[in-house]
Design a protein around this nucleic acid. Structure first.
Lengths: 197, 197
DNA sequence: AGGGCTCTATGATCTGCCTCATAAAATTTT
DNA sequence: AAAATTTTATGAGGCAGATCATAGAGCCCT
């Protein structure tokens, strides 16, 4: 979200992480600002029974865990590399300096918060429907509008049913069945198992 | 969230609204910054079947609908006065001027966004448990920690079971039954039907 | 005090999501 | 190419939250 060169000039360090590596854990104190240069990071809660609640699947250029830097409280969810990734890390102090010096950057973060909050509102509204189909349709519509997780070339939604299950809080079998119903009613287009938006 | 005198000096107008009066509607374009001087405002989605999903029960001094001013998209939920209230309204332009001029105020908004996002993360994590008791316990713990909706004098949680239902997305009967189970297991203290935290 | 409303409460039933089991297909790794 | 892993798929059954019905308790309003 912040220009890489600027981050580096402020003393940010670049690190490569393997798939499955934990970048920060739920409950830990926020000490750094993190930005994903390349790769994919799951920002999730992991439960004892193996279930995962994925709050955000971080893509290239996005930051994650940033809001903990603003209220100073522990991380509410863990960040785990989903594939081999490259991550930039900047100390909290340097991050706050950057914001104080540059109103434009600060405003960009405010806009980012607004977008994220909008997503959460949409998500919780969709949950209220108590219908897997409506829930998934809203989610897919959101990603379509935002162009997130959508392949620019083939317009495929680059999310597996398992990932949609982890995001929506539904079980994978329920997602599979709901997607079939959505397809049957021509509410979504599925080609070779892949959603085309 | 912003000092009242400062808002008024920027041209904010004060308005009294009756209980039930709509301040802004889901889908409408954001034109103003709103701050509750006194009263109570429900920030909710209202569904055709009468169900309500309450995202936030706004209290004295809190602002609402503010994040739409940052991304410029329509409101995701409506704001309705829950009791007779007094609301301050500032034009979007003046609001952005204020932020640009005053880094401290801007930072306060960022912190507010962070707190709200933290709440949403907590909420969605709690939903993932698929257990009304865990969900409600987390909600009550959150309000306890934040001191929100808690009477300073008598330590009563000032939320009805119906309100908890609208917030949690559960049905009121489910909330009532879950609260009884929590009480039976000594996880919460209920006196005369009221939760004491 | 009385009327109207909301809130709290409880039982019965139903629906649908979760769970478990199994297996084929697709993808990744060796 | 083969093996291993993940993803997609389908069926059967259980369980719990939603739903519907009913009613008492508490509260606000004239």
């Amino acid at each position: 979200m912040i220009e890489v060169a600027l981050l580096l000039s402020k003393g940010a360090t670049c690190r490569k992480v393997e798939a499955g590596e934990v970048i920060f854990s739920e409950g830990a104190s926020p000490l750094y600002y993190y930005q994903l240069v390349e790769g994919r990071v799951r920002w999730s809660n992991f439960f004892d029974n193996g279930k995962e609640t994925m709050h955000w699947l971080v893509q290239d250029g996005e930051c994650f865990g940033e809001f903990a830097l603003f209220d100073g409280k522990p991380y509410v969810a863990s960040a785990v590399a989903d594939i081999p990734s490259t991550v930039l890390r900047l100390s909290a102090d340097a991050f706050h300096e950057l914001l104080a010096e540059n109103h434009e950057i600060h405003l960009e973060f405010s806009k980012g918060f607004a977008r994220h909050l909008r997503f959460k509102f949409m998500f919780i509204r969709a949950m209220g429907s108590n219908s897997p189909e409506k829930m998934l349709k809203e989610l897919i519509d959101y990603y379509t509008e935002e162009g997130k997780h959508v392949c620019k070339k083939c317009r495929r939604l680059m999310l597996t049913r398992q990932q949609l299950a982890n995001i929506s809080g539904l079980r994978v079998e329920t997602v599979i069945r709901a997607m079939k119903l959505l397809q049957r009613d021509n509410r979504i287009c599925i080609v070779k198992g892949k959603v085309i938006v």
